[in-house]
Amino acid sequence: MTQDGSNAKAFVLLSGGIDSAVCLQTALDRHDDVEAIHFDYGQQTEAIERSNAEEQASRAGIPVHISDYRTVFGDFAEGTIEDKSYDSDTTEREGHSVGYVPQRNLHLLTTAAATAEHNTETGREIVLYHGAQQGDGEEYPDCRPEFVQAATEAINRSTDQHEIDIETPIIDHTKADVLRLGEELGVNWELTFSCYNDEDGTPCGDCPACLERKEAFAEVDVADPVLRDR
């Protein structure tokens, strides 16, 4: 049973990064029945992200569903799914972050909801855990509370088999706050990856994602086992 006494089943959108790792541990603390969903949409760092997600799920003793989104996102490839290099001098393009992928979270949440329904008995409540955090909302419209509320309403209007909730436990957290919470929850940072560039699983240390990670670990005064040599 969950902490609130319900029989909800939780599904965590598990990217292999910091935010989703914290969401996974949060879900595991709150629910007895947890599964993970990982999306492969052609991102350059998919190999290490998937490896991390699978290892996190394995250590938690839960199944992970792999959703292949390459064909869908390949029709409008932008952001981290293009074969290009990112650095500290290239943080924006056409008015938004270089990591922007059009309609990404709307796609991922609706597919996660469908995956969850397919793997949950009729009538049980479903909770989707999505790792949007405060810094994301500044640049990505689909990481803001208004979007999450609208997505939740739309998803529930599309089904009469389950009640589906979208939980965003770190949406009001800065990246440093996310790290602090993760420290409390015992998250293994070695199994997280934040880089936009593909260097055979080694972070570049210079792209916007790496810089944000460096700043957050420095603020919290915690050693980063992934970027320690960068």
Rank of each mutant, 00 (worst) to 15 (best):
I155P: 07
A114N: 09
E199S: 13
V101R: 02
R93W: 13
A114D: 08
L106V: 09
A209F: 02
P225M: 09
L211I: 15
L28S: 01
H118C: 09
L109C: 05
V98G: 06
Q134N: 11
T202H: 14
Q134H: 12
A223H: 12
T111M: 10
G137A: 03
F39P: 04
E199M: 13
E139P: 01
T45S: 11
T159K: 04
G205V: 11
T2Y: 04
L179K: 03
L108F: 15
A77F: 03
L109G: 01
P225S: 00
C210K: 01
E138N: 09
L24R: 06
I37H: 01
A112V: 10
D29M: 10
L106W: 12
Y69H: 12
L28H: 04
D68T: 02
D229C: 05
E212N: 12
D221L: 10
T26M: 06
V34H: 04
I37W: 04
T26K: 07
E117H: 07
V148S: 00
I171W: 08
D142C: 06
R30H: 11
Y100L: 08
P169K: 11
K84H: 06
Q43N: 10
I170Q: 05
V34F: 00
H31A: 12
E125L: 02
P169L: 08
G135Y: 06
E167C: 01
I164K: 08
D29G: 07
L108V: 11
A113C: 08
D177C: 06
H96S: 14
S51L: 12
T91V: 15
D200G: 13
D229A: 13
G135T: 14
V226K: 02
V12A: 07
Q134L: 15
I66T: 13
T122S: 09
A216V: 05
R70F: 08
E35K: 13
D4A: 11
V226H: 02
Q25N: 13
V34Q: 01
E35C: 08
Q161I: 03
G137F: 04
S6E: 10
D177V: 08
T26L: 07
Q43V: 09
G42I: 00
I126M: 09
L106N: 11
G131V: 07
D221P: 07
E82F: 01
G74C: 09
R228S: 15
G74T: 07
E46D: 11
D89F: 10
D33P: 07
N188P: 05
V34K: 00
F147L: 05
R59E: 13
A116Y: 04
